[in-house]
């Protein structure tokens, strides 16, 4: 193999996984946006339609994504590091549980009544708290109760926001 081809072969290796993934991510988002905006009229320059800017932005995003992906072949950069799914699941899951329980929900066969802050508050603290490597359950339980009490006093009474506390128990 001549030196030239070795160099070329080296030239085409992925030097930055992170940049390549970032470029592909941008392209993916742009394609989704272009698909969603496909039936929006572009209009003319004189009278811009609702589709013009979303499509234009999406095309620019895609272009930038391509540039980013190409540059990952040329410049050395970072690798993709590990993803901590535990954090994602517990932290974001805690928030979702809060959203589902604070006013209750009704999804087909599953029904949850309005539980209010008295239940949702400790739930979000407890669930998200599990994401920490150095969690201590007892401490977390006490902290959940303290934080909920504090938030109830602050938001409901001091600030007067209309947040349900425990409609099923206290009627407020």
């Amino acid at each position: 193999m001549s030196l030239n081809t070795i160099e070329r072969a080296q030239g085409l290796r992925v030097r930055s996984q992170q940049d390549l993934a970032a470029g592909l991510f941008m392209i993916l988002l742009s394609v989704v946006a272009l698909f969603l905006a496909s039936d929006l009229p572009m209009g003319s320059l004189r009278q811009i339609g609702p589709g013009m800017l979303p499509k234009a932005f999406a095309v620019i995003c895609a272009g930038l994504g391509v540039l980013l992906a190409l540059s990952s072949l040329r410049y050395n950069g970072e690798k993709l590091s590990g993803w901590s799914w535990r954090g994602v699941i517990f932290v974001l899951g805690g928030a979702v549980v809060f959203g589902l329980t604070i006013r209750g929900f009704d999804l087909g066969p599953i029904k949850v009544p309005q539980l209010g802050l008295v239940v949702s508050g400790p739930l979000v603290v407890l669930i998200s708290g599990l994401a920490a490597d150095d969690r201590k359950i007892k401490e977390l339980v006490i902290f959940a109760i303290v934080m909920t009490t504090f938030c109830a006093l602050l938001f409901k009474y001091a600030l007067g926001l209309p947040i349900p506390l425990a409609p099923w128990l206290l009627g407020i």
Partner: peptide, 10 residues
């Protein structure tokens, strides 16, 4: 962070 989270949620 749980405190941050409950604050954000509310």
């Amino acid at each position: 962070f749980p405190a941050i989270l409950i604050f954000c949620c509310i």
